[in-house]
Design a protein around this nucleic acid. Structure first.
Lengths: 217, 217
DNA sequence: ACTAACACGTGATGC
DNA sequence: TGCATCACGTGTTAG
């Protein structure tokens, strides 16, 4: 792209002093003829301004030249259009399936209730999920715990009962079921017992929980 | 917007036969001077083509005039940009929380843990929390529900029992206690009953839940 | 020297 | 009659 690139600055002073000849006239005119001279100027300015405005709306400009501005704006419009299409697609997908998950098997399970849960435990082990309990002391009288286990109908209720039995008050809790497995995260407040002086016997608590969770309802 | 609108068709035959005068020359030239005449023509054609292409990319065109084309393209770009912003916003909202909450009072309350539990119910009412249940159908056999209520020891267990009784399987759930109030958000799968042909009686379900939650343990 | 891009003034063309 | 827009050819400037 050679050549004088930058927009040429307006001149305004009639630098062209030319002679015009009418069809049958012959004499030389220094005079000024142009009924629409000013109008044309306004038109040019207008277009120029519009182009500059357009340029300001386009993030990437390869060249300051008029044609390039228009060209870049075209490509930009195309990009925007495609982006809009993609976003709407994604959004519609999301509306149908609010949870991300592993896509496939997940949604199949959730959307079609169908036959429930034959061989949950095996499915879980196939997928590499194992029964697991983690405990963590996060405060003087506070615990955080994570439980992964197979999905059983009464598991959550049982968990709540155990918690109450152990004198643990639920501060907050989240439960998620997926692929025949259940994940529970919760932080609890220690109300009574279980507090051996200053410390809590985490290992013992963990074993107890594990045992209870494993026993069938 | 008066004036010759439609693009003027190219003329190509030099219809202007003018006399040019050099700075100090005076004689009349019929001759052809134009080193860059053809180049200029190509440039014009180029810009023209780009403008037409731009016009073809913009759905709404108020006028065929050059300035209008550029102007319309600007507004179109703005619309597209805004749309993109809106879509991304919506998408992000969806990723974080599948459904909107009431915002305000909620977050304000949740942030301050402070002193525990004297006059729970009164405190809740002071802060403007009222027992509230929202239900929302988010799929063929799926419900989303939000419950705000006062903090009661057995409320969560009771909730689980009620869910099981109603044939609702917990897909996921979060519980948060704060300032003597409890917030429960959950999405559930409808296993049995409650499904009246295609639709679910949300209002009835809601009333039932409300009643159960209000009754003391 | 050569090319590319610009602003200018002009005649023409519809409204 | 104006008025707005166009294409054209040109002089000019910068790479």
């Amino acid at each position: 792209m050679g050549g004088g690139n930058r927009f040429q600055e307006p001149v305004r002073i009639s630098r062209r002093r030319q002679v015009r000849k009418g069809e049958e006239e012959n004499e030389v005119n220094e005079s000024f003829k142009s009924p629409n001279l000013e109008a044309e100027r306004r038109r040019r300015e207008k277009l120029h301004g519009r182009l500059m405005a357009l340029r300001s709306h386009v993030p990437i400009v390869t060249n300051m030249t008029k044609a390039s501005i228009v060209e870049d704006s075209i490509t930009y419009i195309s990009e925007l259009q495609e982006e809009v299409v993609n976003l709407t697609e994604k959004l519609h997908e999301m509306e149908e399936a609010p949870l991300e998950l592993d896509e496939q098997q997940q949604t199949d399970q959730i959307i079609k209730p169908e036959h429930e849960t034959i061989d949950l435990k095996e499915e879980m082990k196939k997928l590499g999920i194992e029964e697991n309990i983690q405990l963590c002391k996060i405060g003087e009288r506070k615990l955080w715990l994570k439980i992964t286990t197979e999905k059983k109908p009464g598991i959550f209720t049982k968990f709540m009962e155990v918690m109450r039995f152990m004198g643990l008050e639920i501060i907050d809790i989240t439960l998620t079921t997926s692929c025949g497995a259940t994940l529970i995260c919760s932080s609890v407040q220690i109300l009574q017992g279980l507090c051996d002086g200053d410390s809590v016997d985490l290992e013992q608590t963990k074993e107890f929980l594990l045992e209870v969770m494993r026993s069938n309802p």
